[in-house]
Write a protein that binds this DNA or RNA. Structure first.
Lengths: 233, 233
DNA sequence: TTAATTAGTGTTAAAATTACACTAAGAGTG
DNA sequence: CACTCTTAGTGTAATTTTAACACTAATTAA
């Protein structure tokens, strides 16, 4: 490595990487996106999509790039989760990982097995394979994070289709929070926030009363937020 | 840098550093600990205590070490805040900083101006000097974080003396949250959680009714937490 | 002795949360 | 076509939580 900068510090540097915890929802379980590794270490083992940070990209840009390269998913809004820096977290050498998470709709993306990747698949959180590195720990923390966040931010809408029924939204909240929610109270609360647009459309071909579709009203949310409104479930 | 590991990746690496946002409380304002830099860049300017991560320490260990080396403060529990990785955040070269924050009692520590440091001082948040790097942004985020956290974790007790009065605790919450709180409702709520030990001791030499001292009951908190209790202000 | 200052204490009204059960609509079946 | 199955959709009352509010007690200083 070049060292011609008079300020540059002299110590050996940890390598820097980013890992992505991508949550998806398919109506039932909450899922997480994993890739089967093509190379050592942990060759043929499942792991989070992740890779090294280039010198001219931010860690967030890196996370998005890697996600795209390895799984085909792009244009997702990721948020920083945590930076993991335990000395031995990677068997090769010292690697510090800045992790990110995102919530997406499983149906909206076509998965590919990209660079250094044998397979890319959704796994239910209740049925994860054994993971390489400290990735089980990272997923655990990401899950904790969204469980907390869901209460005071309207996340979760990203995991559904543009149009969704209130029951689907409730199922999502139940999946994330791992609790049962009362249908009437839930609807009262959500509709009371005036963040949903009621659409004229209804479900079709369902063997029961068709549910009305709603969509998330981003504009209303923005306006309310500017007026000091706080989302709270 | 040595490169004899067959797995080691080939790209140039960002340097890795840690910065510390240390909040203190002296009964009035909420304060933050700053150091005046002895060296370029930002020589003679104020900045957060920070420095480079050694290859054999975690970023958290680094933060604690740097804090001790530069300010004399040690034995504080820091929590990770965020990792800043904008390309140009340091004028020297690409440096990624993992930032940490902590809450301490200003009276409990004697400040020194340690390595590469001309002065170490507490600054009221309402009266910060111009800061080097992106440190103003880091402080802003740290403040946001503790404002959120204070509502669901009994942090803040760290900023007071072991023994404190309920009025002092209230003032602290008012300083962090920047709101006025009703005295009776505050006392009702805090005492209702049974996390405070009522001591026999009272204030002395105050020109008004002497207030009772309380201390935080860590044991009770631990036990309650294990029973599923959630602190909530 | 008086003035100044902060500690300490309860009640009531309003708002938010919780618990709870029936009718409506659509598709499938015999 | 009537019956069954399934999920959508709806309101009320009891309970709990929150918010608003004012006086007496204790101590020092003047």
């Amino acid at each position: 490595m070049k060292n011609n900068n008079k300020y540059q510090y002299e110590y050996p540097r940890p390598a820097l990487a980013s890992d992505c915890v991508i949550f998806g929802f398919d109506g039932g379980d909450l899922k997480v996106l994993l890739t089967e590794r093509e190379k050592e270490p942990f060759k043929n083992k499942w792991a989070l999509p992740g890779g090294f940070v280039f010198i001219e990209e931010t860690t967030e840009e890196c996370a998005k790039r890697i996600l795209h390269e390895k799984t085909g998913i792009k244009n997702v809004f990721v948020e920083q989760l945590f930076t993991f820096s335990e000395i031995d977290r990677d068997p090769r050498e010292r690697i510090v990982s800045v992790s990110y998470y995102a919530l997406v709709n499983t149906y909206q993306y076509e998965l590919i097995a990209g660079r250094d990747t044998l397979k890319t698949e959704w796994f239910a959180l209740s049925d994860l394979p054994k993971l390489g590195f400290d990735h089980a720990k990272i997923i655990k923390m990401a899950l904790q994070r969204i469980k907390g966040k869901v209460n005071y931010q309207p996340i979760g809408f990203e995991l559904l289709n543009e149009k969704f029924t209130l029951s689907q939204l409730q199922q999502l909240y139940e999946a994330i929070l791992e609790v049962q929610i009362d249908k009437r109270n839930f609807r009262k609360k959500i509709l009371g926030m005036a963040l949903l647009k009621e659409l004229d459309e209804k479900e079709k071909n369902v063997a029961h009363k068709a549910a009305r579709f709603y969509s998330f009203d981003k504009k209303a949310y923005k306006e309310l937020t500017q007026k000091g409104f706080y989302f709270e479930l």
